[in-house]
C-alpha cells in the first residue's frame, strides 16, 4: 500500500532512482508540450495560445482523480504523503510576485530548467535570475522574510473540507469547470488569432 517510501517499503537508493525516472517523464511532458517555448507560455495571458491552461489542468486533474481513486480503493493513504500546509498570507503575496515574474520572465522554474538545458539562452538567464533570487532571499531571510513566511498558518488545510463538501464532489466540480474553460479558451484563441495574429505565429505550432 502506498506511499511506499514514507512507510519504509522501498529503499532510499531505489526511491532516488524512481525520482529520476519520474523526472524523465515529467521533462518529456514539459518539452513535448511546448513549455520550453516562452511565447507559448505567455500566450495564456494574451489569448493567443492556451497550452498552459490545457496541460496544467489536465495534469492536475489526472493526478487528483488518480490519487483519490487509489485512496478510495485502499491502495494508498494520501495523509501519509507530502501534504502541503497552507500559509495563506505568504502564499498570496508570493503568488502575486510569481505572477509578475511569469509575465516578465516568461517561464516558471521547472520550465526554465528545461529551456536552459535544451539551448534556450533566455532560459539560462532565467535560471541565473532564479538563483540570484533564492540566494537573496536566503541571505535576508531572518530580518525580512521569516515572520511573513510563517504568518497566516492554517495547517494541512483541504479545500473541499473548508467548503464543506467531499473531495470527490470538489474534484468533479473542478473537472467540469476545466472542460468548460478548455472550450471557451479554444474559442478565444481562434478569435484572437484570426483577427489579430501575433507575428511568426507558425513558431507556436498551434
Amino acid at each position: 500500500m502506498g506511499p511506499l517510501y514514507p512507510q519504509g517499503l522501498i529503499s532510499e537508493p531505489l526511491n532516488l532512482l524512481i525520482a529520476l525516472f519520474i523526472g524523465i517523464g515529467f521533462g518529456i511532458g514539459l518539452e513535448a508540450g511546448g513549455f520550453t517555448n516562452t511565447r507559448k507560455l505567455a500566450g495564456v495571458f494574451y489569448g493567443y495560445d492556451f497550452v498552459v491552461l490545457k496541460v496544467f489542468f489536465t495534469a492536475a486533474l489526472t493526478g487528483a482523480i488518480g490519487l483519490f481513486l487509489l485512496d478510495n480503493y485502499g491502495l494508498m493513504d494520501i495523509e501519509l504523503t507530502f501534504y502541503p500546509k497552507t500559509f495563506w498570507i505568504p502564499t498570496t503575496i508570493a503568488g502575486i510576485i510569481m505572477g509578475l515574474g511569469f509575465i516578465i520572465g516568461g517561464f516558471c522554474p521547472g520550465t526554465s530548467v528545461c529551456a536552459a538545458f535544451t539551448g534556450k539562452i533566455d532560459g539560462i538567464y532565467f535560471v541565473i535570475g532564479a538563483f540570484i533570487g533564492i540566494l537573496g532571499y536566503g541571505f535576508t531571510y531572518e530580518p525580512l522574510f521569516e515572520k511573513l513566511r510563517n504568518s497566516g498558518g492554517l495547517g494541512k488545510a483541504n479545500i473541499a473540507a473548508e467548503l464543506g463538501i467531499s473531495d470527490e464532489l470538489f474534484i468533479f466540480i473542478v473537472t467540469v469547470f476545466a472542460v468548460v474553460a478548455f472550450i471557451v479558451a479554444n474559442k478565444i484563441q481562434q478569435k484572437v488569432n484570426s483577427k489579430n495574429p501575433v507575428e511568426n505565429i507558425e513558431e507556436l505550432g498551434l
Binding site: 482523480i65 488518480g66 481513486l69 478510495n72 470527490e168 468533479f172 476545466a178
Partner: peptide, 26 residues
Amino acid sequence: TDKIVIIGLLLGSVWLFFSGKNTPEK
C-alpha cells in the same frame, strides 16, 4: 485526441465520485 482525454477526465471524475460512497470512512 482532445476529445478522448477530455471525456476520459470527465468519466474519471464521475467514477471517483461514485467510488467515494461505498468505502468505509477514512
